[in-house]
Amino acid sequence: MTDNEILSLMRETPPQGQRALFDKYYSYVYSIVNRIINGTGSPDDAEECVIDVFASVMMKLVPDDDCSLKSYIGTVARNAAINMRRSLSAKTGRNVSADDENMAEIADEEDIEGNSDKSETSELLLKKVSELGPPDSIIIIQKYYYDKSSKEIAEMVGLNAAAVRMRCGRAMKRLKKLLEADGITL
């Protein structure tokens, strides 16, 4: 039966037209509703929503309209299923509105933007330290990252402690110039 025949039947004998509409579009409406509320509601909830869709369509549809029944019914089914899903989610507490006053308690205190900036700065700093080359880059990393003493670093790089301190001071000056060239001041 075509949409025009169903609309004509609804004008002439509404109960038969409504039955024809239900018979033709039941599976279509059920599949839309089930897809949207799946995982949130039970099969009984889906059936209830389907019945609500047909009740709404039959009360609001004007049989004189020359419209596509499939698109009209599909839209009503989608909207009803979304409303049902929201209602079921609210009852089970599975979702939280962003406007909820308790949302601040749930929010993470991590500063993503700040961490990103620190990460980029750290990456640039490490790149500039590696540009110093060995043994200066090794001395800087061991002293400031691993907090090693000049004596411990001297044993690693094969210099004496005084030479390590001297190289560290000069390497820091060179590193400062490299960073300033990229617009970073310490």
Rank of each mutant, 00 (worst) to 15 (best):
E123K: 07
A80G: 00
K91S: 14
N34G: 06
S122M: 12
Q18H: 12
R174A: 12
C67G: 02
K177E: 03
R170Y: 10
F22E: 06
P14V: 11
A104R: 08
D23Y: 04
G39M: 01
S8P: 00
P15D: 15
L126K: 13
D3Y: 01
C168D: 13
I82T: 14
D100C: 08
E120L: 10
G41T: 06
R85F: 10
K177Y: 06
V57S: 01
M156V: 15
V157G: 05
D64V: 06
E180Q: 04
R170W: 08
S122D: 12
P63K: 00
K91D: 12
T185N: 02
K70D: 14
Q16F: 11
P15V: 14
T13R: 13
K143R: 13
I138V: 15
D45Y: 06
S56W: 00
G93T: 11
I6H: 01
I138T: 15
I153S: 04
D111M: 09
S137Q: 03
G169A: 14
S137R: 00
N83Q: 04
K118P: 11
I153T: 07
I139D: 03
A181W: 01
D44H: 01
T75Q: 13
G41M: 04
Y26H: 13
Y28N: 06
N115P: 15
F54E: 03
R170S: 09
Q16G: 09
I141A: 02
L124S: 09
V164N: 10
T40V: 13
N79K: 08
I73C: 01
I153M: 03
V50W: 02
D99W: 07
T13N: 13
Y26S: 14
D111F: 06
A55I: 03
A104Y: 07
I36C: 02
S119C: 09
Q16W: 05
R86W: 10
V29W: 07
K177D: 02
S116M: 07
S8A: 12
I140F: 00
A161H: 11
L69C: 02
Y146A: 09
E12K: 12
I140R: 00
V62W: 03
V164F: 06
V57A: 03
A161C: 07
N115G: 15
I73M: 01
V164H: 04
I141N: 01
K143F: 05
M103T: 11
A98G: 09
S97N: 12
R11G: 02
Y144D: 08
R86Y: 10
K151Q: 08
A104F: 07
S122K: 14
V129R: 00
I139T: 05
P43V: 10
R19E: 14
I36G: 01
A20C: 14
S150V: 05
C168A: 11
A81H: 10
C49G: 04
G17F: 10
K118W: 03
L178C: 03
P135I: 15
L124F: 11
I140K: 00
A104E: 12
F22I: 15
D64M: 01
S68G: 04
A154M: 05
V33K: 05
D3I: 04
I37W: 02
P63I: 01
K118C: 14
K128P: 04
E105I: 11
C49E: 07
Y146M: 10
